[in-house]
């Protein structure tokens, strides 16, 4: 299915957010996540299915003012 991953079109067959995060090579605690603009806590990722066209955000620490 096609989803939006960090603002770009992305093909994935992973059924849930935890699988997608792992497939991207991230350790679970290194990133924070959201689907369709709503925060998904780390412990809920495996119960959060990915649906056609959904918008996934995977974010990490960065510099800020």
């Amino acid at each position: 299915m096609k989803i939006q991953l960090n603002g770009a079109s992305h093909d994935t067959e992973h059924p849930d957010l935890a699988a997608l995060v792992a497939a991207q090579g991230h350790e679970g605690g290194e990133v924070a996540t959201a689907i369709d603009g709503l925060f998904v806590p780390r412990q809920n990722r495996s119960q959060s299915p990915l649906n056609e066209g959904c918008a996934v955000e995977i974010v990490a620490p960065m510099e800020g003012g």
């Binding site: 960090n6 603002g7 497939a23 991207q24 090579g25 991230h26 290194e30 990133v31 924070a32 955000e57 995977i58 974010v59 990490a60 620490p61 960065m62 510099e63 800020g64 003012g65």
Partner: peptide, 26 residues
């Protein structure tokens, strides 16, 4: 110190790790 969040590229993309590098530094 103030910090922020940014979209993190997948580690398989070849552009990975910026977030973790900053995290270690800060």
């Amino acid at each position: 110190v103030t910090v922020s969040l940014r979209r993190e590229a997948g580690k398989n993309s070849g552009k990975d790790g910026a977030g973790q590098q900053f995290w270690s530094l800060i």
